[in-house]
Structure formats: C-alpha cells, structure tokens
Nucleic acid binder design. Structure first.
Lengths: 224, 224
DNA sequence: TCGTACATCGTACGTCGTACGCTGTACTAC
DNA sequence: GTAGTACAGCGTACGACGTACGATGTACGA
C-alpha cells in the first residue's frame, strides 16, 4: 500500500485546492472564521499543516478563494423573466447564502479584488439591468443600490443574536428590555414590544425593503 | 519623581479606558484591525502589554468599545427639520464615519450586543421616524432599509481598491480592463469605460440611492 | 505604622502563520 | 535498468499573538 493510498484511507480523498477551500468554508460555517487556522483545517483534511501551502499561496489567498465559493452559490438572475422578478430571485438567493456563511460578509471589507465567480455575477446582474432598459449610469446606480441593500441587510442579520422569531421573543424579554430603561429609550421599548407581539421574520423584512427599492427603480429605465 | 510621573513623561498622560480605546481606534485607522495587537497598542501608549487588561477585560471587549466610539462619531438626526433632511444628515454622516473607520464594518458582523452609543443612536433614529408619522412597524421597516443601505454602501466602498476618481481611472485602465475579456464581460467593460470617462464620486453615488430610498419611504407615513 | 486597594508590569504557555528544507513516489529519457 | 526530475506532502523552527498568573511598588485610611 503506497503512502498515497494510506492517506486516502485517512482522509477519503487526495488533497486538492477545491477540497482545501471547500473544507475551509465548512469549518468557517461550523465554528466561525476566527476558529479557522491552517493547522485545524489541515487536521480536518487528515493532512499536515504545511501541505496546504502546495495548493494555496497563503491564508489570504485561501480567504479570497472562500469568498468566491460563496459567490458561486448565489443564483444568477434568470434571463426569461421580467427584470424585477430576476433581481428579486438573485437578491433573495444572496441573502440566503450570506445568512448561511455570515463570516463572508465581514471578510469582504478587507479583500479588494473580486474573484472569477464574483465577476461573473456582476456581469450577469449588469446585463439584466441593461437589457431591462436601464442606461449605463442608471444600471450602475441600481447595482450599487441593490448590492448595498443586500449586503447591509445580511450584515445586520448576522449581528442579530437570534435566529428565529421565538428566540427573538425570549431575547427581547430576558436581555434587551431590562437594559433599556423606558424613560431613556421610549421608542425602542415601543418597537420591541410591538415586534415581540407581532412576531419577527427576517425573510419578510428583507422582502419589504427589496420590493420598495425595486419599485423605486422601475421609473428609471427606458423601456425598449 | 514618582513612577507615575515618569510614565507621564513617557506617554504624556495616565492610562485610562478612554485613552486605551481611542488609541486603539487610531491604530486601526492607520494600519488596519489585523495590525492591532495588545502589545503594539501598549507600545503606542508607552505601557506594558498586560497593563491594558486593567482597563479592558479582553481584546473582545476592546473591539466592542471601539465600535461604540465609532457610533459616537455619527451625527444624530437633527430634530428641527423635516424627517427626510434629518435622515439624510445622519446617513451622510454615517457613511463618512464608516469610510474613516472601515475596519468597523467588518467588525460588526461578529459582535452582537450594541453598546450605549449604538443604542442612543437607534433610539434617536426611531424617534425621528415615529414623530414623522411612521407607524411602529413601518418605522422598523424604514430603519432596516436605511441602515441596510448605509452599511452595505460602506461595505462596498471599503472594498474598493481606490479612493479618488483619478485613482479609479488609472485602476480601470491598468488593472480591471486587462482581466475582463470583452467577449466574456461585455457589460462590465461598457460600465468601466463609461465610468472612467464620466468620473466617479462615491458621495454622489451614495446620495443617489439615499434620495431614492427616502422618496420611496415618504408615502408610507401617516401625516400627523 | 500597618494593611489594603490600586495600577502596572514580567514571565510563561499555548497557538498562530509560514520560511525552509527534507522526504518518498511517479514518470521520462536514455 | 537507471539516472534525473517534477510532484505532493511533512517536520521543524521562528517570531508574534492573546492572556493567566503572580510579583511589584505606590497611595492612603485606620
């Protein structure tokens, strides 16, 4: 039995850049980026730490590659529908993906050069807007506005300390309200009370703002 | 001369939580969060590394405090104007502040409990919206939408590899276009060309989307 | 004078990213 | 066959990190 085959027994497959990056994403999903170290990643792959550097020049490059994996997961705007439905589809998909990989949002701030999947994504979105009749500069504006909304929403959602409406109700009662004296924060108290009663769903919240933005963009295009 | 006075000669003032946190913000502004270590921070303050732990329980707590310093810098919506002007003022201020402290955006993703300045800020914004006639749930929607836009815009702006229009023009020509084959990315090429010619200003881009959002929110309030 | 609270620091431990150099295997050329 | 070379992976070591722990000296009330 060769050393190669022995490794395969230990880790079920040979190393590859693909496998390294995908396992890194899994690890970050499970325990956060702060817990992602080259040694732990290597451990999860049944390999030595330095072996990873055959496939990845540095940890920075690994993080860039991880972000691009995330972009690959986001649905492109479908071509066969009206532009609003298409943009809604891809925005909803983006929110879902970013909620699945919250670490990716924080990473984007520090990484400046977009990967291939990111570029393909931008191209598809721009194409959709241009074909819908938005002039070049308007398409740029729309792109910024929509992406800002999606990323900003994901960022806020990631920093919520709860995942479900029930958790929110518990949280509001046990943690928030006690540290919000009603005389100092009357409006936040009001909001918290109403939200706790009405229930809270991030997906609905997202849809509300998204539809508002899409409707506001509609008159800016020049129908073909 | 006491040891205390000697230290004052070395660092111009006694240590305090305030001074530690403010210097940490300065360091992060100058060299990025990744360059902010307890040892380097202590060095900048003319102190030993472990001395910081008298004022700060952990690095995590330091980061939380840094974020709250950032929120303190953001202008609250003024009370004496119409709601759109008030929200525009605070949004513009927020963008400027976040552009000055880009590390803060990436940090927000991982820290879940808002500091006192953050809470005061939310209260003031909610108050402004409620007084403008937005019902409770609508005020929540508006809050999410506006904050998403501001944070998302700041996030995108932070990941731009240039700061001025001139830099953008250079960048577009030297770096972007070469890696964007026109047959694969026709629309991105078109955008880049038009933007390079028309010039590019993040403040204007921000204002465009912001005004669109504010106008879209206007009909949702119930005038008092 | 003594005790105690305050403010600061030195040392040490485990972990991090990664530079460097060594291995063994697979394959090509002769 | 055999020598040479590229591939894929690993062990060790270095400097930096966050911080637990305990020692230090000073200020001040009893």
């Amino acid at each position: 039995m060769s050393a190669r085959e022995q490794r395969q027994v230990a880790s079920d497959a040979a190393l590859s850049k693909q496998r390294v990056v995908v396992e890194a994403v899994r690890l970050a999903d499970r325990e956060g980026v702060h817990a992602l170290s080259m040694r732990r990643l290597a451990g999860a792959l049944g390999a030595g730490a330095m072996s990873l550097y055959y496939y990845v020049a540095s940890k920075e490059e690994l993080l860039d590659a991880m972000i691009d994996v995330v972009f690959e997961e986001i649905e492109l705007p479908p071509e066969e529908t009206d532009w609003q439905s298409a943009m809604r589809r891809r925005a909803v998909s983006a929110r879902q993906v970013l909620a699945r990989h919250p670490w990716a949002i924080g990473l984007m701030e520090s990484r400046t050069s977009p990967g291939p999947a990111h570029l393909r994504h931008r191209e598809a979105v721009t194409a959709c807007l241009r074909r819908a009749g938005f002039p070049v500069l308007m398409a740029t504006h729309a792109n910024w506005l929509l992406d800002s909304y999606v990323y900003g929403f994901a960022l806020q959602e990631a920093s919520l300390p709860f995942d479900t409406a029930d958790e929110f109700a518990d949280m509001a009662e046990d943690v928030y309200l006690p540290q919000l004296p009603p005389d100092e924060f009357p409006y936040l108290n009001e909001s918290a009370a109403v939200l706790a009663a009405a229930g809270y769903d991030p997906a609905e919240e997202f849809a509300f703002g998204l539809d508002l933005v899409l409707a506001a963009l509609e008159p800016l295009r020049v129908p073909t």
